[in-house]
């Protein structure tokens, strides 16, 4: 049976203050982040500015700095912080028993 959540792996496979990606065929990758305090977030791997790969940015506090032009994007809302304006879609994510689960519907939307 198809569940609401997709299991993508162990949380500790994501480097602390780092990111891994989930490849979605036919769509944008999903970037899955782990903060300094071990919280896991997921965003579409695309900066609202010039579509930089957020998964390649520096994670600090609850934000990631885009590698292309250093926009800071909130990990929890996908909104650009500071003076910049824009928003990256958030992918609901939860950690259960150390496994990272991402929302199936949002993942499919990424492919659409």
């Amino acid at each position: 049976m198809i569940g609401e959540w997709l299991d993508i792996g162990w949380a500790d496979e994501i480097p602390v203050r780092g990111s891994r990606t989930v490849r979605v065929e036919g769509g944008d990758d999903i970037a899955v982040f782990r903060t300094g305090e071990g919280k896991v977030f997921a965003l579409l791997d695309r900066c609202p500015h010039k579509h930089g790969r957020l998964s390649q940015g520096i994670v600090h506090g609850g934000a990631v700095a885009c590698p292309l032009h250093n926009w800071r994007i909130s990990l929890s809302t996908g909104e650009a912080l500071g003076e910049d304006k824009g928003c990256t879609p958030v992918v609901p994510v939860k950690v259960s028993g150390g496994r990272v689960l991402i929302c199936r519907a949002s993942t499919l939307k990424a492919a659409a």
Partner: peptide
């Protein structure tokens, strides 16, 4: 290695 390989891959099937 984790810098390079994606954590997981998904191929939506028949739900598009």
């Amino acid at each position: 290695r984790e810098h390079h390989a994606p954590m997981a891959r998904f191929q939506p099937v028949g739900e598009m």
